[in-house]
Design a protein around this nucleic acid. Structure first.
Length: 886
RNA sequence: GGGGGAUUAGCUCAGUUGGCUAGAGCGUUUGGCUGGCAGCCAAAAGGUCAUCGGUUCGACUCCGAUAUUCUCCA
């Protein structure tokens, strides 16, 4: 006791609370001293789990251990995990920044037991860490225990209750319902009761008014949950029932930012040193002040929070885009821009300027922030510029809407259109309308939004059934590096119903099929049973470390042994493209510089696509150099050197290229061709000579600071070249086998332009002659210059003629007829003056005369045309024309 | 993955129920004014109305497909 006090006095004077850095490391060290292995944070962006776009809890990276799909290296681990939440129980994106304790991006401190310790240790360590290491006053802590649930036939968590009773007074223990104290991963999967620790940091006066235990789980900003201890012991099945897991696990999560708030004696997460550096930078670049008004405070919190989320995502390789995870990032960034625009009056990009501060502040713990700093800045700046343009455009459109609005209520449909089609934020619309004294029909807007949501959801509903387990997978499950066929057994399968009908997912005991990953597409092929039944495998993917084969139908006897056959033709072409991708990566770093980093990759049997960080368009010379570099490596016939179980640190030391935002285990696979060495799980050719030839097809930009190269190899290059040659030959042939086709085309184009002008001039001349001719034939009848005549011109020629004649007088009535392709055409021109004076209508004329040629038509009062299929009636139509002016 | 919009001169964009032989501003070229420049005035050049197909007497306009792009939802 005394030693604790001394510690407090010497190192922790009251006015100098622990820095956030120190809090983080104390947590990790505490569990390390209790035999936990410290592991790094997994990337925030998730790649091989279709049910999740971002890491939203500390447990995500361990999901496969809880599901039993693979075994952990150690049964006790601890980490800090970067997480992103944009929707959920208490966490709607639109709410972040309004209060002082919700975030999109946050750190989750966790300690984990995989079939090792359970409730007793988890509870004791949590209490010890909080009260003895961090020295939080026991009198401000509350704990909760699961009360049981009749739906699931579960009883009160007596074990946890007893454990807590031994250390906490009973009046500080709260029983919680299923919603608060029974944790589930999703609709299906591992789950279990939990115990939460809450902290009450209100002032003494406040506490006297309302007891803290009444405010637990009541959304009070200063009575908050800081630690959730989950005791995983059940598996939720598709039908909703629970079954016991073979092993019990512990999953805990403590919000780092909240812990800092408590330990630094602040009332808001944003007042801790996790946020203060960013906030003061925002104050600086926007010339605003935090703490002066509610509106600017919210805006500043929104920006401080969102810049973290966006920067971490981009550093992990997830760029803003218009689909999937990229779209979530875009939305977050745009929300920050819009708050700055409206409340801090920022009309120029500024958020990108905050990246430096963030990188300095957190770059030690998360090195990707340092190495990806420039990319983050470029991408954010570009996105800011483009969204500011969208806002400008939207303001104009909104102006139009307001002008056209009768009354004082603007249609929700219009507002929705502005939002949906033009991306103009609805709250900004509402704000502007309010300022102008208009109202927005919000009900109508919401119903439009709801319609759109329903439509989208219906289009993406996937219903997965329970796995039917038939056997165990082998530990070395993927054998496709060495084999393209194998005798296999189905270990589990399930039915999945989606928009495009039903299909089956099959898992094999071992498989030669490569699952989509690392940019390489999944293998196709088939399974064949001994009695000749064939099941086509349409795709292969990886889900939570399980290799899943997609097929339209199930074999008659799933328990039989099958011959698994990979479509080797496709696979071999794909391998050539994948190896070429590595050489391309090396070439780019060589030609352009070391700043080139892979930002995305797609390798199929047809072609390869490679996205990388670079700031400017590649010149023709650079593209040539890159191509030559790759082709030289191909000609050098470099053999594949594959190391399957290399230690990660060892690989990096040897110079292997690892990707940011990619999760690597301790043991990695390294692929080397000469001096190109990359960590890669994909399949490759045995020798670069197998690539044959490499050709870049296109080069362009995908985002600020990111460029894309598309290329082909081998036979595809041959096909490409022979196609090009064929086209060239055809061009040559057309040009009478000239040696200089480009020159020939050029002169043809010039000649063509000159001829066009000549023809135009001639036609004009001809029309003039014809015009003069017809002018002489005009008859003056009742003061009207009249002519009805058949001419030999096409539709536009007749029109030209009529208009030219029209210019020569103001009392013309023309009916011109012509015949083209067995069809008849009547055109009537009446001077506008006549139309007005005599109430004539060319449209009416042609419609009526059209009867004689069995057709119809119309036009304007002064010029109209009609077409018909009976040229024999032309004469009669011409004769009748005079009746209109008599 | 699903929905909505856009694509017209070098650039930014108009083009009303299908019919004014497609317009504006900026830019370009030429000429003029001015001592020179900035500038002003005048004139001209510049368009397969994204591509292909359909409906129609007639399509920039309507319909379908494709491409590119923006945007919302999942």
């Amino acid at each position: 006791m005394f030693s604790h006090l001394q510690h407090l006095i010497i190192f922790r004077p009251f006015f100098c609370p622990m820095k956030s850095q120190e809090i983080r490391s104390k947590y990790l060290e505490f569990f390390k001293s209790n035999a936990h292995t410290i592991v790094p944070s997994a990337p925030m962006v998730i790649k091989d789990d279709p049910t999740l776009m971002f890491t939203n809890a500390g447990m995500n990276q361990f999901k496969e251990y809880f599901l039993g799909n693979s075994l952990p290296k150690s049964t006790r681990m601890t980490d800090t995990q970067k997480c992103l939440r944009v929707s959920g129980k208490h966490n709607d994106l639109e709410e972040v920044g309004m209060d002082t304790y919700h975030h999109t991006m946050f750190e989750m401190l966790g300690n984990w037991s995989f079939g090792d310790y359970f409730k007793k240790e988890a509870i004791h360590w949590a209490w010890e860490l909080l009260t003895e290491v961090f020295k939080i006053d026991k009198n401000i802590l509350y704990v909760s225990v699961f009360e049981g649930s009749s739906d699931d036939n579960l009883e009160l968590d007596k074990e946890a209750l007893e454990l807590w009773k031994a250390i906490v007074p009973e009046d500080r223990i709260i029983l919680g319902n299923k919603k608060d104290n029974f944790w589930e991963m999703g609709d299906q999967g591992p789950c279990g009761p939990s115990s939460e620790i809450h902290v009450d940091i209100r002032s003494e006066e406040e506490k006297a008014k309302v007891p803290g235990r009444d405010l637990v789980n009541a959304d009070h900003p200063q009575v908050v949950e800081i630690w959730n201890l989950v005791f995983m012991e059940f598996n939720r099945k598709a039908d909703g029932s629970l079954e016991k897991l073979p092993a019990k696990h512990v999953d805990t999560g403590m919000g780092f930012e909240r812990l800092c708030m408590v330990l630094q004696h602040k009332k808001s997460n944003y007042d801790t040193d996790v946020f203060t550096p960013i906030i003061s930078e925002i104050e600086k670049v926007t010339s605003s002040k935090y703490g002066k008004s509610e509106k600017t405070d919210i805006a500043i919190r929104v920006i401080a929070d969102h810049v973290r989320a966006v920067t971490f995502s981009i550093a992990d390789g997830q760029l803003p885009s218009n689909t999937g995870a990229g779209y979530v990032i875009r939305r977050i960034l745009r929300r920050a821009i819009r708050y700055g625009f409206t409340f801090l009056n920022t009309k120029e990009p500024f958020i990108y300027k905050l990246v430096d501060t963030l990188s300095t502040q957190m770059g030690e713990t998360f090195p990707e922030l340092k190495s990806q700093k420039n990319l983050c800045k470029n991408v954010i700046k570009e996105e800011e510029q483009s969204f500011l343009r969208t806002l400008d455009q939207g303001l104009i459109l909104l102006e139009n809407i307001i002008e056209k609005t009768e009354g004082k209520t603007v249609s929700g449909k219009k507002a929705f259109e502005l939002y949906d089609t033009f991306g103009f934020p609805i709250d900004l619309t509402a704000l502007i309308l309010r300022e102008r004294g208009y109202k927005l029909n919000e009900e109508e807007f919401n119903s439009e939004l709801q319609k759109q949501k329903v439509r989208s959801r219906a289009a993406s509903v996937i219903i997965a059934g329970d796995w039917q387990i038939l056997g165990e997978e082998e530990s070395q499950n993927f054998i496709g590096y060495d084999e393209l066929l194998a005798d296999v057994k189905i270990t589990r399968f399930r039915k999945v119903a989606g928009q495009k009908g039903e299909l089956f997912q099959i898992v094999l005991d071992k498989t030669p099929f490569y699952p989509e990953g690392g940019g390489q597409v999944g293998d196709k092929g088939y399974l064949k049973s001994s009695d000749g039944e064939m099941i086509k495998i349409t795709d292969t993917k990886k889900e939570n470390n399980l290799i899943i084969h997609f097929t339209k139908n199930l074999p008659k006897d799933p328990s039989a042994t099958f011959k698994a056959v990979v479509d080797s033709k496709k696979r071999i072409l794909t391998q050539a493209n994948h190896s070429a991708t590595h050489l391309l990566h090396q070439a780019l770093r060589n030609v352009l510089g070391e700043h080139v980093e892979q930002k995305g990759s797609m390798v199929s049997s047809e072609h390869l696509r490679f996205d990388f960080s670079h700031f400017s368009k590649l010149t023709a010379v650079e593209i040539d150099e890159v191509e030559n570099f790759v082709n030289e490596r191909i000609r050098e016939k470099l053999p594949l050197i594959e190391q399957r179980d290399l230690e990660y640190k060892q690989a990096i030391k040897q110079g292997a290229i690892a990707l940011f935002g990619e999760k690597y285990g301790d043991s990695v696979r390294a692929i080397r061709f000469g001096n190109s060495m990359e960590l890669c799980g994909g399949t490759h050719v045995q020798n670069t000579a197998d690539i044959w030839y490499f050709k870049i097809i296109s080069e362009g930009a995908v985002a600020a600071g990111i460029r894309r190269i598309e290329a082909i190899t081998g036979d595809a290059v041959k096909a490409y070249f022979s196609g090009q040659t064929e086209t060239l030959n055809e061009i040559r042939a057309e040009l009478k086998n000239t040696k200089t086709p480009v020159k020939a085309i050029h002169s043809l184009q010039e000649e063509n332009a000159a001829l066009k002008k000549q023809v135009e001039a001639l036609l004009r001349e001809k029309a003039k002659n014809l015009k003069n001719e017809l002018k002489n034939e005009l008859n003056n009848i009742n003061g009207i210059e009249f002519l009805a005549k058949k001419v030999d011109l096409d539709a536009s020629g007749v029109k030209d003629l009529a208009f030219q004649l029209g210019e020569t007088g103001n009392n013309l009535f023309l009916l011109l007829a012509s015949e083209q392709d067995g069809k008849a055409l009547l055109s009537c021109y009446i001077s506008k003056e006549l139309v007005a004076e005599r109430d004539l209508d060319a449209g009416k004329v042609v419609r009526e005369l059209g009867k004689y040629i069995q057709g119809g038509g119309g036009g304007q009062p002064f010029f109209a045309t009609a077409g018909g299929k009976n040229p024999a009636g032309i004469n009669e139509a011409l004769e009748k024309a005079i009746t209109y002016i008599e």
